[in-house]
Computed example of a mutant assay.
Amino acid sequence: MNSQLENNFKYHTPIEGQTEKYNKIREKAKELAYLIDKICPNSREKALANTKLEEVSMWANASIARN
């Protein structure tokens, strides 16, 4: 059994303090998303920036959940 794979593909019930950390990350990501939406022209690049920002938020929260 590979413990890293087991950890990466299981549900991680939030423990005390994690939910607040998740929310802080989401709020900052949302703040940047609004800035991007406001000052960047609609384009493929803007769409990619938003996609990457979503990825950043998800991976940052995964780091909290998994570790």
Rank of each mutant, 00 (worst) to 15 (best):
I39T: 15
S57E: 13
A29G: 08
A62I: 04
K52Q: 08
K10N: 04
Q4N: 08
E16P: 03
E27V: 15
A62K: 11
W59M: 12
S43H: 05
E54C: 02
P41L: 14
M58S: 07
Y34H: 11
N50I: 09
H12K: 03
I64L: 08
E54P: 00
Y34I: 02
M58L: 12
N67E: 13
S3E: 10
Y22N: 02
E27N: 10
Y34R: 11
P41T: 13
K10I: 10
Q18Y: 04
K52E: 14
E54T: 08
P41K: 11
Y11P: 00
S63L: 08
L53H: 01
R66L: 12
I36L: 15
I25T: 04
N23R: 11
E54A: 11
N7M: 07
Q4L: 13
E20I: 13
I39C: 04
A47V: 09
E31L: 02
T13R: 11
M1R: 07
T19K: 10
L5S: 05
N23P: 00
N2M: 03
M58C: 01
A29N: 03
F9G: 04
L35N: 10
S3M: 12
E16W: 05
A47Y: 06
R26M: 10
L35Y: 14
I15H: 07
A49C: 11
T13N: 07
K10F: 03
E45L: 13
E6I: 12
Y11R: 11
L53P: 05
P41V: 15
E6R: 12
I25N: 00
T51M: 07
N2R: 04
K10D: 02
I25P: 03
Q4R: 12
E20V: 14
T13K: 14
K46D: 02
E31D: 04
N2W: 02
E54N: 10
P41I: 14
Q18E: 15
E31F: 02
K21R: 12
A65R: 07
K46C: 09
V56D: 00
Y34G: 01
D37W: 11
H12R: 02
